[in-house]
Design a protein around this nucleic acid. Structure first.
Lengths: 378, 378
DNA sequence: AGCTATAATGAATCACTAG
DNA sequence: ACTAGTGATTCATTATAGC
């Protein structure tokens, strides 16, 4: 079991003395500004805060796809800040209130991208929060980089933090290990972005530009709360946190300002059905087959630039280059592309076409890939 | 081709004027404190800085594995800071010098973990660096979390930043796509940790507690530098940056304080073998061909005035006019401009948008351009 | 109904040169 | 500094249309 699946009794009592036992009203949405709304809540009253604040994206002009279609960017007023200083002040303010209303045994989750997460992370450390992990949400299906100017931005970062270094907190270690096929849950989670039936739409257009997938909240809550715990989301949006809390038998409080989001959130949570224990157990992440790019073999030294490959009949001999491309008779390309080009075929599986010359004869490139997998698999 | 695979000539000249052309001494290790050593270097003299600063780990007591064996943690004096404020001051200082000695077209890479990366990221944004990506090094074989109190910390974070929002920088887009089996390289990289033969040891114990794998530096340098570029590493350690730079035909400068690391680094780099030029070559976009104006095809008779072009779906039919402009549905313009206008798109590549009807179906205009080039090449 | 082809879209800091 | 012209550039998934 985790560090704390039962609360430290002495601390729990101390809280009970400081804050008169008034039943906290839960499973409700508070309309209005998140900082003002949090101020109205008592000290140490929630077990988890999940926050998805504005990212302060600072986007430039319009962006088009290669096919000419327009990319629907996040241009909402709530994501606009005048400066880093203004964003930092906003961050400090909501974090301070979050810290106050969070129980000593509670934990904070914040999600962000490189635009804002470094500022948020530094700010919460400054306030005394103790980072337990940073978690990488590796998007299974991110939007590509259309202009070929950077790496595809394929992840977002979550920070998980306790109130202080010595604080006790809930971590359902066993549940996470079960969810991950009996391997310890890692700090990188592969999950699809929110789309399909799950994505809330009105009149054919998305209700919220940045709706988070329920699978993400599901894992967060399953890992770090107990049934009956209170989860607060100060940037509630369309209520993913509320819907998942209801499903998992946790209590929730949402704070949201925009009426259009509120309406969609309430309707959605109303429709959400609590799961029974057996259904929860079924939801497992499928283990993805590890994919290895040819370039990885070059990078990791299993094959050096300058090495030669040939086909099974030794008709062609190709030289490996630094980026994992091949060169043969003045032609260059990927292992698949060059193989196809040389044979005049529309396509070619380079892993089986290209051979490595070894002591015991030619072996397909694929055996090197198998070696890599054997060496790196846990 | 990336944003910039050759330097902006005007900017390069400006630098040459500001900084007298004194040959920078490269492929060498500077002993001593990184900030003092950087101060001795001229402005705008390096193309890339790769920094692996102390992580400020704040580890508590000793850590033991379940079998009772002791975990060799990072407890070196260089990783001790009295407070976040002290660490922040240190970060500001080395980043300021890094910014000064980095060329306007250069980029900065920093690697860290959740202990320090948020502070480093916020600090470099404050200094004016423009984050291009944050990259997740997803460790293929991380150390498990022995106590079962948190998620297995299975990644580290790298930040890639240019000097400013508008700065030009090198990104070898095509090489990265090739390296990743013809898919855009994403912001999450799966690479094994440094071990086996690669891990430097002396008397059976590791020389450096946090030696980075060469595969990581390999990808960083292949992505963001050109052959002959100067790469500086202010926290050189055992010289992974130097060894990979030598292999890839880049120049390097390392700064290191600890004599034990220096010794290992120099020995290692001495033994590293440079790849020959053909192996270091990377895939480029087919753009080295001289520019051909559309009008030239009309002038030379490859396409006659009055000929018709259409798009792939035959939605539009355009007539070629004598001056190389097109006419369609009363609209006229260049091959690019008219294509954009008809689609209602902000821009359009006319060479691939417009098709020529031939015996074996539609072929993009670009094939005519290729024919012209073949016919006119010496 | 079932299968295949086409279209749409997602937290994105997304071009460069010449004049 | 700004404008205009050329031309380089996308992946996984879902929804819809066509057969």
């Amino acid at each position: 079991m985790g560090v704390l699946e039962r609360v430290d009794r002495r601390k729990a009592k101390a809280v009970a003395i400081a804050v008169p036992e008034v039943a906290l009203e839960t499973d409700r949405l508070i309309r209005g500004d998140c900082i003002a709304a949090m101020r109205a809540l008592p000290d140490a009253c929630v077990d988890m805060i999940f926050a998805d604040p504005p990212y302060n994206l600072q986007l430039g002009g319009d962006l088009s796809r290669p096919d000419g279609s327009h990319v629907d960017a996040v241009t909402d007023a709530w994501d606009k800040f005048d400066s880093f200083a203004a964003y930092d002040a906003f961050t400090r303010d909501w974090l301070r209130e979050a810290r106050r209303i969070l129980k000593p045994t509670g934990t904070l989750w914040v999600i962000g991208s490189y635009h804002n997460i470094f500022r948020v992370g530094a700010s919460l450390q400054d306030q005394g929060f103790w980072i337990l992990n940073d978690i990488i949400w590796r998007k299974a299906n991110p939007m590509p980089n259309f202009k070929g100017t950077r790496f595809t931005n394929a992840h977002e970062t979550l920070i998980w933090a306790s109130q202080s270094e010595k604080a006790k907190y809930t971590f359902n270690y066993r549940a996470m290990k079960t969810l991950n096929d009996e391997l310890q849950m890692r700090s990188d989670w592969v999950l699809p972005i929110c789309g399909g039936q799950e994505r809330l739409k009105k009149g054919g257009t998305k209700v919220h530009p940045t709706q988070k997938p329920e699978s993400l909240l599901y894992r967060v809550m399953l890992a770090c709360t107990k049934p009956g715990d209170v989860v607060l989301d100060p940037f509630f949006g369309t209520g993913t946190t509320g819907a998942v809390a209801k499903r998992l038998g946790r209590k929730w409080i949402g704070i949201e300002r925009e009426e259009s989001y509120i309406e969609a959130a309430l309707e959605r949570i109303e429709a959400a059905l609590p799961l029974d224990e057996s259904a929860v157990a079924i939801m497992q992440t499928p283990r993805q087959a590890p994919k290895v790019a040819f370039g990885t073999l070059v990078e990791t030294g299993l094959l050096s630039p300058g090495a030669t490959l040939c086909d099974t009949k030794r008709r062609w001999k190709a030289v490996v280059r630094a980026d994992g491309s091949l060169e043969c008779e003045g032609e260059t390309g990927s292992i698949h592309g060059l193989g196809a080009k040389l044979q005049g075929a529309p396509s070619c599986n380079g892993w089986t076409f290209w051979q490595v010359d070894s002591a015991d004869g030619l072996k397909p490139l694929d055996t090197l890939r198998q070696n890599y997998l054997l060496a790196t698999e846990p």
